[in-house]
Amino acid sequence: MAHFSQDPQILQRPVTLQRVLTSFLLAFLFMLLPWQGTFLLLRPDLLLLLLLYWSVHEPRVLGGWSAFALGLLADAADSSVLGIHALGYSLSYALALQYRQRILTFYRLDQALHVLPLVLLSQVVTAGVMFFLKTPQPHWIWWLQTPLTTLLWTLLPFWLDRQNTTQAEPPRAA
């Protein structure tokens, strides 16, 4: 599904499944690094970010099941209760899909403002479920994950767009 990005001279190629899968593999690699202490609390949720990116830019490649499956894998990777990330990711993914046309009309920084509540939603779901399971809440620094993840939204599309675009032919002089 080709569409124009912010610069109308640049036409985007439809993404290949291989590229999507590679990006998720890299996100898992980032997630599974030996994080500890404060760094663990601050680790941005790259997986959710990529999920939102692909759902906004290439809604036909992923389905709702992929948000659920990625969430389950994230739960296993984080050794948390199975289903917590799956619930948060499913909700964020559905909302991103709903508002994708609107998000695409903005520039990157304004897009990030739309992404912030989606990432926050996933974190609130996690905190809420843990609250109901009577698990003590982590240090407040943990909530900085959302702004950090959102900040990455302003950088990540830059790289992914570049991988994915081709320069359109310049208009011919009449």
């Binding site: 898992f28 599974l32 709702g64 099941w65 948000a67 659920f68 969430g71 389950l72 894998l73 739960d75 296993a76 990777a77 209760v81 199975l82 289903g83 917590i84 799956a86 619930l87 499913s90 909700l91 479920v129 399971l133």
Partner: peptide, 29 residues
């Protein structure tokens, strides 16, 4: 998907019946 996730949470947190599934996911990772 929300219902499925909630079911997973309840079964895993209260009944501890998803250990085999978790092992499979960990093997994948």
């Amino acid at each position: 998907y929300c219902a499925l996730s909630l079911a997973c949470i309840v079964v895993d947190a209260h009944y501890h019946q998803l250990e085999l599934f978790r092992k499979a996911l960990n093997l994948l990772l």
